[in-house]
Amino acid sequence: MSELDLSLARPILEGVSDTGANGLKLFVQLLRGMVTLRADLSSPSVAAAVKDVTGSDMPDVRKATENVLWMSTDELLLLMPYGEGGAVAAKLGEALAGEHHLAVDVSDARSLFKLEGGAAREVLAKGAPVDLARDKFAVGDLRRTRISHIAAAFWQSGAEPDVFEIICFRSYANYLWEWLEESSREGSMPGIL
């Protein structure tokens, strides 16, 4: 009988890029478990189920907690260690049995990047039509938008003001990586944010 072997799972790209500009660092985060939950976000039982599997409260509109991202009016993206997505989706399914919802393991559908450093805002501002001034986009804020040509989302989950986590669909990971590296070049920042 075949056993599931998690060590076979590989991200589409791996690496850290120290671009040198303003101490910028760009990481591809290794695999991360993710579950899409679509449901009535105002329902107390949905909030309770989310709290139960993530330990996190329901985020406000366009906000991110440490492991729950607000994606749409009826959609969350939950984050967990890789390999646990299936179990989390199943647990949500049980908790919300009888309530209309969709919980699906999407741990492999997206690539997750981390960009940190004083110039991180300016890097993103080169391709995302979003006001990234410190008082307009702060810790806990999340934005789904486009970066250059592709759909992406980014948020600030940690306490640091200049650490951004960025996701895009996995097949575009190489494109976004190269775009972020190019856009992080030393001396290329407009110096406005």
């Binding site: 669909f169 575009y172 494109y175 190269e178 190019e182």
Partner: peptide, 16 residues
């Protein structure tokens, strides 16, 4: 054109 030349001109989607 900005940075969107060469590989960045248009995204290419890649399978695993």
């Amino acid at each position: 054109a900005g940075r969107e030349t060469g590989n960045l001109f248009k995204p290419v989607r890649q399978t695993a």
